[in-house]
């Protein structure tokens, strides 16, 4: 392995006692403090500042309208334009989920159901939001495009049980997604 010898930079006396740098830093900080008091902080507008610096006063103020397009919040299940639940309980998300947050109980769709040809759907689908790390692996692995990370980020509860999103809750958060690949059309 090649050894690279680094030359320490030669410092003059002023730099060696670093007093000048301290003073410089102090003035920089002070200038920002003054700017902040005058409501002129850099990026205050885009970051929806409360007036003092760039700080947003949570929870009175919310991120919601400022969330970027790519924001990834809580994972949730979605239905398609015909109201069909897209998830077929293939359990791939349960398998891939790094902190094992997802628990699925599969079931067979009864033959008198309008979507009987899909054959399979989840009976229970739980995501433990204490465990979820919002990594988005579930969304990526889903072969049916049934699970998406939505914009919800305020997941709170008073009990552990409150933090488990069941199937009903997941569909509430998820809502409808249209225009995705639809493999269960009339040709199937």
């Amino acid at each position: 392995m090649a050894v690279v010898k680094l030359q320490r930079p030669k410092l003059n006396f002023g730099e060696k006692i670093y007093f000048g740098a301290l003073i410089k830093g102090f003035f920089l900080t002070m200038s920002h403090a003054v700017k902040s008091l005058r409501g002129k902080s850099v990026g205050a507008e885009t970051l929806a500042s409360s007036g003092l610096g760039v700080t947003m006063q949570f929870p009175e103020q919310r991120w919601d309208s400022h969330l970027p397009e790519y924001y990834r919040g809580a994972p949730a299940l979605v239905t398609d334009e015909q109201g069909r639940e897209r998830c077929v309980s293939c359990q791939l998300c349960e398998f891939i989920c790094p902190p094992k947050a997802i628990k699925i109980k599969p079931s067979e769709i009864p033959s008198d159901d309008p979507w009987a040809k899909v054959e399979k759907r989840p009976l229970e689908f739980d995501i433990d939001m204490i465990r979820c790390i919002y990594c988005g692996m579930c969304e990526e692995v889903c072969p049916e495009q049934a699970i998406y990370l939505r914009k919800d980020y305020l997941i709170t509860g008073l009990k552990r049980a409150d933090m488990v999103h069941d199937k009903k809750r997941l569909y509430e958060i998820g809502g409808v997604r249209v225009g995705l690949v639809n493999k269960w059309n009339e040709l199937k």
């Binding site: 309980s89 293939c90 359990q91 791939l92 349960e94 398998f95 599969p106 079931s107 067979e108 054959e119 399979k120």
Partner: peptide, 9 residues
């Protein structure tokens, strides 16, 4: 065994 569990588990 139908729809009970995926085999990779």
């Amino acid at each position: 065994f139908r729809f009970q569990m995926r085999v990779w588990f």
